[in-house]
Amino acid sequence: MEEVLLGMGLFSNSLHVPRALVPQMLAMTVSDCVGLMLADWEAKLEMNRGPVEIDISCQFEEVAADVISHVAFGRNHKEAKEVYLVQKELQFLAFNSIFNVLNLIPGFRYLPTKNNLKMHMLEKQVRSILMNIIKNRVNCKDTVGYGNDMLGIILNACAPEHVQNPLMSMEEIIEECKTFYLAGHETTAQLLTWTMFLLSTHSEWQEKLREEVVRECGKDIPTDDKLNNMKLVNMFILETLRLYGPVTNIQRKTGSNLELGGIKVPEGTILSTPIKTIHRDKELWGKDAEEFKPQRFENGVGRAAKHPYAFLPFSIGPRACIGQNFTMIEAKVVFAMILQRFSVSLSPNYVHAPMDVFTIRPRYGLQVVINSLQI
């Protein structure tokens, strides 16, 4: 399944798609989705005959949802977009329930309270949408195949309706779809948001990055080779991930008794890694750990801090995020396409108040002022 899920499960060699083409195909998918947003910006600028203010965080959530819908569900992307809307509401209900002291009572979440009934209804709705998409794929297999999107590849590998001992049950496939959709959308949307926040507050870097994008791509859509040549863009995104990484904490359960730093840890212990704290630790990153300095990644991730594994936005090791390449490609394409056409500055209406709702997001949105460029 590693090959199957490469790059967020986009394509596999089993479907006659060369591995080298995966980033290029993803870049084209992203450009199609973000192009609609940028066209809307251009229309607003033309109507206003000058700079306009927009809440870019909301728009990035839409773009990220469009991208993951196309990548994961292909021809069913419109139905899958409903999953984004439902899970968004479900996410906030779940987050709010964390702070309800009544949830500390054993079994309270099973009581028919208004909030619990709403969450149960939304969970059933998500499952129903995904089940219908999967059944439709299975029923159409003999005529149009499973497809070469993430869902199609999983079905080709597991085929729960056609193999005597499938690798995954239907329920497991549904859960995988929910996980990939939530993880592939939410984290990328917030990365794009904070990248644009830092871009709008560091005009000197905005000019450097635009020069690099124009030099490498001109007005063309960034392809795999061109994305790899954007060293400054890559450094900028990595520094954004250090300061405003969407995930602030990861947990792991020990599979056996072990010893860490002289401390004996029994099997089954939940270990928590505070990524946000590590990323701003002055002992690891220097006295300027709180400052925005993309050049710290000039010699690569392993040399950016005093410890080679101090950078953890995607975790590390065999349990590292399987979608990190997907996220980086999407972020670079969106970033480059914006720099090609627009200048961005922070709106005076913006209030800096990051909050943690499963991911780090701006509490009141990100209001920026955009202006058109003539390149």
Rank of each mutant, 00 (worst) to 15 (best):
339 L>C: 10
222 P>L: 09
338 I>S: 05
348 P>Y: 07
184 G>P: 13
349 N>M: 06
316 I>D: 13
230 M>Q: 02
158 C>I: 03
148 N>V: 06
149 D>Y: 08
312 L>K: 12
94 A>W: 10
252 R>E: 08
17 V>T: 12
313 P>N: 11
110 Y>A: 03
124 K>W: 01
50 G>I: 06
98 I>P: 00
280 R>E: 02
195 T>F: 09
65 A>F: 07
38 L>R: 00
84 Y>T: 02
7 G>V: 00
72 A>I: 02
174 I>L: 15
370 I>M: 07
98 I>R: 00
57 S>H: 13
303 R>D: 10
263 I>C: 15
190 Q>N: 15
127 R>T: 12
67 V>I: 11
137 R>S: 11
269 T>V: 12
223 T>V: 13
78 K>A: 04
148 N>G: 03
235 M>N: 15
375 I>S: 08
373 L>C: 00
126 V>R: 01
208 K>N: 13
195 T>W: 11
66 D>P: 14
116 N>F: 14
364 Y>G: 04
309 Y>N: 15
189 A>G: 02
65 A>D: 10
151 L>C: 13
81 K>L: 12
154 I>A: 04
155 L>Y: 10
179 T>W: 14
110 Y>M: 03
179 T>D: 02
191 L>Q: 12
365 G>Q: 08
27 A>C: 10
65 A>V: 01
293 K>G: 01
180 F>R: 07
149 D>V: 02
111 L>A: 07
292 F>W: 13
311 F>L: 05
210 R>W: 05
306 K>A: 15
193 T>R: 04
289 A>N: 14
316 I>A: 15
19 R>N: 00
255 G>S: 09
344 V>Q: 02
329 I>E: 01
330 E>P: 06
355 M>S: 05
6 L>H: 14
351 V>S: 06
332 K>R: 13
271 L>K: 10
122 L>F: 12
241 L>T: 08
23 P>V: 05
271 L>P: 07
223 T>R: 06
196 M>A: 11
96 N>Q: 13
112 P>F: 05
192 L>V: 00
129 I>R: 04
22 V>D: 00
281 D>H: 10
100 N>Q: 02
34 V>E: 12
186 E>R: 01
251 Q>L: 04
157 A>G: 05
266 P>Q: 12
